[in-house]
């Protein structure tokens, strides 16, 4: 059996889709299997090889229409993955900072000036932002589970999930940048307290950049759905 027409159709579909590799590969594998099955069925019914392939492609649907339906599912998949990552990683980052405070930072150094009240308030808000963002992501996953049992369209679900993921990551990043800038302003020595604290800061930065990239990709998956 010639695979040219089917290969071109699947390659065209592949080129139009954005999303998590595994979910995309699953959909494309099923597409190819379904087209091969359809061609075999049409060959058995007496069509020629090329006619069977053409009929299989026609029945499957115009590639643009199918790509839109697939992309909506990939957007939900990307949104879910990003929200799960936020719900897991941010609390772990919080634990890392708590352990750091416990073992390496300790009580306030009496030789340093006590920080102003606004700084302590900002530090507390920054601490809470990560936990709240993780809680919002977890709640969004539960609500999403409920919504998808109703008639909520997948494209809408994908946009909601990606928007929420992007807002959560932006809030946490803003908190981190604000606390670093405030620390710089209050006492720059606190930014370089010890190697473990510096390492934790670097890890936090890498995690936040990674989450930012995930959320941006997720939004891109959701917004190319037309």
């Amino acid at each position: 059996m010639e695979a040219g027409v089917i290969d071109r159709y699947v390659a065209d579909l592949d080129g139009r889709l954005r999303g998590p590799r595994a979910a995309k590969d699953d959909l494309l594998t099923e597409t190819r299997d379904s087209l091969v099955d359809a061609v075999e069925a049409h060959l058995e019914s007496g069509l020629s090889s090329s006619a069977a392939e053409r009929r299989a492609i026609e029945e499957f649907g115009p590639v643009g229409t199918i790509a839109r339906a697939y992309q909506a599912e990939l957007a939900v998949s990307a949104g879910t993955r990003t929200l799960v990552t936020i719900a897991v990683v941010l609390p772990l980052m919080h634990v890392m900072w708590e352990l750091n405070r416990w073992f390496f930072i300790g009580a306030w150094d009496p030789h340093m000036d006590a920080p102003p009240a606004w700084y302590l308030w900002l530090a507390k808000v920054n601490d809470m932002t990560g936990i709240v963002a993780a809680g919002v992501a977890f709640a969004a996953l539960l609500v999403g589970r409920y919504l998808c049992r109703g008639r909520t369209h997948s494209a809408t679900m994908g946009k909601l999930a990606s928007g929420l993921a992007l807002c959560s990551v932006a809030a946490v990043m803003t908190g981190q940048v604000a606390i670093m800038a405030a620390t710089w302003h209050v006492d720059v020595r606190m930014l370089l307290l010890s190697p473990p604290v510096t390492i934790a800061s670097a890890i936090s930065l890498v995690i936040l950049i990674w989450l930012g990239v995930l959320a941006r990709r997720c939004l891109s998956c959701a917004t190319i759905v037309r």
Partner: peptide, 8 residues
């Protein structure tokens, strides 16, 4: 219906 819509 386009059979491709079954998978999503």
């Amino acid at each position: 219906l386009p059979t491709g819509t079954v998978y999503p």
